[in-house]
Design a protein around this nucleic acid. Sequence first.
DNA 1: TATTATACCTAGATATTCAAGGTATTGTCA
DNA 2: TGACAATACCTTGAATATCTAGGTATAATA
Lengths: 116, 116
Amino acid sequence: MKLDKGLIAGSSTMLVLKLLESGDMYGYQMIEELSRRSNQVFQMQEGTLYPILHTLEKGKYLSAYEQQAPTGRMRKYYKLTRKGRQLLAEKQAEWEKFHRGVEDVLSGGADALSFS
Amino acid sequence: MKLDKGLIAGSSTMLVLKLLESGDMYGYQMIEELSRRSNQVFQMQEGTLYPILHTLEKGKYLSAYEQQAPTGRMRKYYKLTRKGRQLLAEKQAEWEKFHRGVEDVLSGGADALSFS
DNA sequence: TATTATACCTAGATATTCAAGGTATTGTCA
DNA sequence: TGACAATACCTTGAATATCTAGGTATAATA
């Protein structure tokens, strides 16, 4: 992606899972869809995506099947499994926690405001 | 930190710079302060912090000076330079962009809503 | 016919964090 | 006194994640 490599680390898997929540997709499509949904902020590289998909498939978070496109080309579709949905929920919860932490620090931190 | 290692990557430098924006600090103090401001979300390790401080100092983003604590112990304080403030601004802008991107994807993505 | 877009994949370099260790001083508690 | 915890600094090596840069192959387009 164009952003600081580090920032993206850890969120890629969550984003991939999130995409599949709205329906089965094939790799190439995910890259376009991620770019579209993020208003071009995320330009995921194939070298990033495919290893993630393979790891998730091995871990049974995704299942895969091949299907012929109208053009005649074969596409490998990925489908979110129940286990994958659970992982997505965990990743999202972690993102919320992390995100809140960063915002707290950027806004000056937990001050005298919070008590009890 | 306790969160997925990857999520933190890239944000650590920004958080360190942000801490120093409110005043000079020494390493050990930054770890405690970061924890406090983030409501215990960030527990930065020394093995993470010190290399970051050294890198930032080498790049002239921070300057350092030693000062004796009331206890008699020596502490190494870090001070944000003008260049450091500029880097912080850049890092924050990048965080905003990244953050917005993630939220857009998590909320379903850029749909028919946005036009022009 | 040549180039671009589609569609999949992998290997190696790079970057970041963490775990685990080290050194040394100060404060506390038995 | 002696032992341990807390303070305060540091480094090395392993693990993890991403990107660069390549590879293969088919379909559409100029």
